[in-house]
Design a protein around this nucleic acid. Structure first.
Lengths: 344, 344
DNA sequence: CTGAAAGCGCTAACAA
DNA sequence: TTGTTAGCGCTTTCAG
């Protein structure tokens, strides 16, 4: 079936397209008689406005682009879900792209998104991204960009991130508060700022509690896998004075460590307490259940969307777009793996 | 900065927009002299075609809509990833929506997608979906629809699904091949066809190996959570003649069961072998590592995309769209939890 | 080889 | 209250 146009309706009724257009969007000055007939025949012909014609006229697409490094990742699923919920409620749609952690691909997809027509962009930078000129180029064409999770201070744009420092600090403080004094950390690779902040939070918590930083209690991942978690757990166990507790940069590492500990006959948390980061849904399912720092992925998506929509609105009203930098707290989820058995 | 139009270029060079348009898409009849100057000034003015103007002319959007029940789900992440990879390679973009397993929302988002302008739709039906009239309506307007994962025989459309029956059959056969004869199943709720097929595969495997179907070895989930896995595992353990192996409808259920077994002092797989379904990434990280049936999510996304693109092409060429029904095999991933210790 | 002109479907200022 | 007209930016005949 061919879709009906304004002209089809106009011809049927012997009026002009302008009248039909006005009737359909109930303008003030329109006789209710013609309004009725127009609405009726529009209904009868299954009229629906041609999306592109409307968008061409209004110079607005009601679509925003979203770029994440990797769609297959629980954290980004949460973020995307938050974005979709906010956007859909306001009649916006999202176009999803992934950069596969490649700088070149990120440039390509952002340009493709601009070319396909979006009102704004929500971007999580890839780990490989070295320059943000491609995003600046978008801004030059009045395309607002909001960064989330992996951001760059070089770009003058709104951003929404997790407070990794605070999350890590709180996780370690939770261990310290229970009286642990020898706390190890398996840190991430040096590059992404996020995991570096977790390391800094770890150090800050130790310092705040007056404990020394012991380099032998720190290991650095390359792959951030459960295998590395296991390897480093074994290394810590072999120390002359092994740590009593472990803060891992991710849940995969924490789970790998717990597995290795148990296989070696150590009990968790009795012989070593463990806490991870990200709060994967399996943390709740394991035995012992795994403590973790929960990142507010859904809220990051919501907040970033709200900021972007605000900038889109401001731009349309020819106002100078305001930029905000939002930092959302992470929450420690205490479960069995980090709970010190009460003495006696 | 205001974006340049064809007219801007034309004015600068004192030619008409038609010439500029032709030069930019290097038409045969165009002097290489003007082509050069046009390309040069286009470059200089940072010309980029206005997306909506192009789409209005060509009556093609290069965008497809994707509807899933729930974005935050590892399986759908895989599917979406496959879709994005195929679509992006051909210059298509995807607009993502979720139905939240609500029939009403599914109707709403499919209509919104049509209204916003897409060339086709990839849809996984929600569990609540009772009628497919909303999809038939799309087809009436020459909007091709391809279903995946949760499909309906009522809609005359291409579809791509996992072979749940075969996956379940193979999982149970894997247990039977090792000599287990008492095999339990924790099945899903009756409604989604997918989990029902797993139950049928379980029964078929038992029958094929000449074993009786024992109702006391089957439990039915409502929530399909690890708690239910634990509950039913305990029930099975309490039987006068407990099963030796367990096939669970999902990994969450399998993990819950394993946890309960271990807490009760049963060893996995020595005292009860366990295999799940979906092959979550954590299966590999646990101790024992969890066997599972892996669903080809990424390939489902790829194949569905290819079918949809074919139908879009056929429709543009005024050919009758062909429909295909693709069923992709699931693969048993054997790990520790289901490996029978070799006697002796 | 290039220009003129029509038109994709819709909106909106201006007239009547 | 409705019609006329112009135009969003681009493509594509048809002339020249």
């Amino acid at each position: 079936m061919k879709r009906a146009t304004l002209r089809d309706i106009a011809q049927v009724l012997g009026v002009t397209v302008a009248t039909v257009s006005r009737a359909l969007k109930n303008y003030p000055d329109i006789s209710s008689a013609t309004k009725q007939t127009v609405l009726a025949t529009a209904e009868r012909l299954h009229y629906a406005p041609h999306p592109m014609a409307v968008k061409l006229r209004q110079q607005a697409y009601k679509v925003v682009g979203v770029v994440v490094p990797d769609i297959v990742h629980p954290f980004f699923s949460d973020v995307i879900s938050g974005i979709v919920d906010v956007m859909e409620a306001l009649g916006y749609h999202i176009i999803l792209s992934q950069s596969n952690e490649s700088y070149e691909k990120e440039i390509r997809v952002t340009q493709m998104l601009q070319a396909t027509g979006v009102d704004g962009l929500l971007v999580c930078l890839s780990n490989e991204t070295v320059s943000i000129d491609h995003l600046r180029a978008l801004q030059e064409y009045d395309l607002p960009v909001v960064l989330f999770d992996k951001i760059s201070p070089l770009l003058d744009a709104s951003s929404v991130v997790t407070n990794d420092f605070q999350g890590a600090y709180d996780a370690v403080a939770h261990l310290l508060d229970q009286g642990y004094t020898r706390i190890a950390h398996i840190k991430g690779p040096p590059h992404p700022e996020n995991t570096r902040q977790r390391f800094l939070g770890y150090q800050a918590a130790l310092a705040a509690y007056g404990l020394p930083f012991r380099p032998e209690y720190v290991a650095e991942c390359h792959t951030v896998t459960h295998e590395e978690g296991a390897t480093f757990a074994l290394r810590f166990m072999a120390l002359p004075e092994p740590p009593q507790a472990l803060f891992a940069v991710s849940d995969s590492v924490a789970i790998g460590a717990i597995t290795a500990l148990k296989e070696a006959g150590w009990r968790v948390p009795q012989d070593m307490a463990v806490i991870g980061f990200s709060d994967w849904s399996v943390c709740r399912m394991l035995e012992p259940s795994v403590s973790s720092v929960s990142q507010p992925g859904y809220d990051i998506g919501r907040r970033a969307s709200e900021l972007l929509l605000r900038e889109i609105r401001q731009l349309r009203e020819e106002l100078p777009p305001e930029h905000s930098r939002v930092v959302l707290d992470a929450t420690v989820q205490v479960r069995q793996s980090s709970l010190r058995p009460t003495a006696g």
